[in-house]
Design a protein around this nucleic acid. Sequence first.
DNA 1: ATACATATAATGTAAAAACATTAAATACAC
DNA 2: GTGTATTTAATGTTTTTACATTATATGTAT
Lengths: 149, 149
Amino acid sequence: MKLEDEIIQKKFGNEYEKLVVNILYTGNWMNLVNSSNLKPYGLTLPQYNVLRILRGQHPNPATVNLLIERMLDKSSNASRIVDRLLIKELLTRRACKKDRRSVDVSITEKGLKLLKKIDATQPKWKEIFNTLSEAEAKNLNILLDKLRG
Amino acid sequence: MKLEDEIIQKKFGNEYEKLVVNILYTGNWMNLVNSSNLKPYGLTLPQYNVLRILRGQHPNPATVNLLIERMLDKSSNASRIVDRLLIKELLTRRACKKDRRSVDVSITEKGLKLLKKIDATQPKWKEIFNTLSEAEAKNLNILLDKLRG
DNA sequence: ATACATATAATGTAAAAACATTAAATACAC
DNA sequence: GTGTATTTAATGTTTTTACATTATATGTAT
């Protein structure tokens, strides 16, 4: 029996316990879709997320700290993810003038161009979730926001 | 700005796009809670999940294949996770009689005992999600099931 | 029976993550 | 200003994951 069926059939202690498995399972599936989409471009999911954060800041730089704050995966290998993207010339890293402990990390033109290319091929969640009406999606968002307090 | 705030404030393309970030973010937070709870027992989350699957099968064995099917993280280092748990004597591994390609993996008494100890200290999601009524949790589950089609 | 395909798990290797520590700059109390 | 604590990022090391390959057993078509 697959977990998918397991979720449906298994007797969970309560709705909250089931909810945890449900969210984790759904999230894993989304991650799978996302990362397999990125593979042709030679980016891992964390690398992609960092690039997107940098694009969000552009043309301002971001510090490594800001990357850590924003990244979905907080485990903070941010410094090394920046290393890897630097090698690929998708970003630049230079000492921050105002605070010499910090570094200014900025996405390059090459990085922006790559993101743009990826944008076009990213999963269309609206279509993937076609079993869900817009109102239901909205409702889910509201409930998830509420869940986190 | 933290991602938490970002989710609230950012303009997403549509509710579906927001939903993806929302679920991933929530799931990451849950994983964090779960794995920090396991750390005192020297188990990683995948190791813990494998042990729980084995307990679910007990007293029957599971094949590695079954573990892969059921694990939340499908990347399938199942074989090596079994290795690690074997070293800790939390499970046994022996050739399967019926199909000599397969292996029978079973949780040991030591493994069962460890799980039992962990059970008592696992996060009480019902309390953690106290911002959410039981009806809302149920509604979330229904919507998530629907989302996956 | 033989040949070929498939299923199952293990292994080799490279990449990334986890965890702890370190180094340097800044903030702050006195 | 001096000493101490804190912030910021990088680094060292170990563990785990990712990806491809391999070895063996089983299934299947002929």
